[in-house]
Simulated scan of single mutants.
Amino acid sequence: MQLQRLERHPRTFGDAGPLTPSEIHTIDAIGYDGGILMSELATRLSVTKGAVTQIIGRLESKEFVKRSPHPDDSRAVIISLTEKGKSAYRVHEELHLNFYKELSAQLDQKEIEIFEKCIQKLNEFLQK
């Protein structure tokens, strides 16, 4: 139940304002440098191209991403982060780093290995 609540609950990432988990993870999947094709982004996120189009539309209206034509393929669109998107990316990355620092300060090496194994098993289960 807690996981379901977390998935729907927006969080604020610095000056970026509230973003849902799917929005911030899309920003994370686009990456800080360069751009990515919509089709590659759909593959990276394991969602349909239609789902990516919807979320990119929301992120574009919030000014986190921009679309650019592909230089060699007129049918392809490249998605990249705006400065606001890069700011959200950095805050999200820092959040993860702080989480792991705090976790490693509270757990010994064996407990960290068990935790990582549990996360791996959970990911495998969720991908089925």
Rank of each mutant, 00 (worst) to 15 (best):
S22C: 05
E113T: 10
A88G: 08
A42E: 06
L19W: 03
I27V: 15
K49F: 00
V47W: 04
I114Q: 11
E23R: 13
G50D: 06
L126T: 13
L3K: 14
N123Q: 14
F125L: 15
A42P: 08
C118E: 13
S22E: 09
I79H: 06
K62C: 04
V52Y: 00
G31W: 01
H70T: 02
D15S: 11
S61I: 05
T53E: 10
Q2A: 12
I24G: 07
G14N: 07
L126D: 12
T26L: 10
R58P: 01
F13P: 03
P10Q: 12
Q2R: 14
F13V: 12
E40L: 05
K101E: 12
E113N: 12
F115R: 07
S87F: 02
G50F: 02
K66I: 11
G31K: 03
S46L: 05
H96W: 11
P69D: 11
E63P: 00
T26Y: 03
T82S: 07
G35E: 08
L97I: 08
E116M: 14
I78Y: 01
T26P: 11
F64I: 12
A29T: 08
F115S: 07
L45D: 00
L95I: 09
I56N: 11
F64C: 14
E23Y: 03
H25A: 02
R5N: 11
L45F: 01
L6F: 10
L41P: 06
D73K: 07
H70P: 04
E124N: 12
A16E: 09
I56P: 06
S39F: 00
L19E: 03
D72M: 10
L3R: 10
E124F: 04
K66D: 01
K121N: 12
Y89M: 09
Y100F: 14
L59H: 06
I78E: 07
L37M: 05
L97V: 06
T20M: 08
P18N: 10
S68Q: 09
Q106K: 06
Q106A: 11
E93Q: 10
S80C: 02
I27F: 04
K101V: 09
P69V: 02
E111P: 07
S80F: 02
Q54F: 12
L97D: 04
K86L: 06
V47Q: 07
A42V: 04
Y32R: 10
E40V: 00
I30S: 07
D108L: 00
H70S: 13
P18Y: 04
I27C: 04
G50V: 05
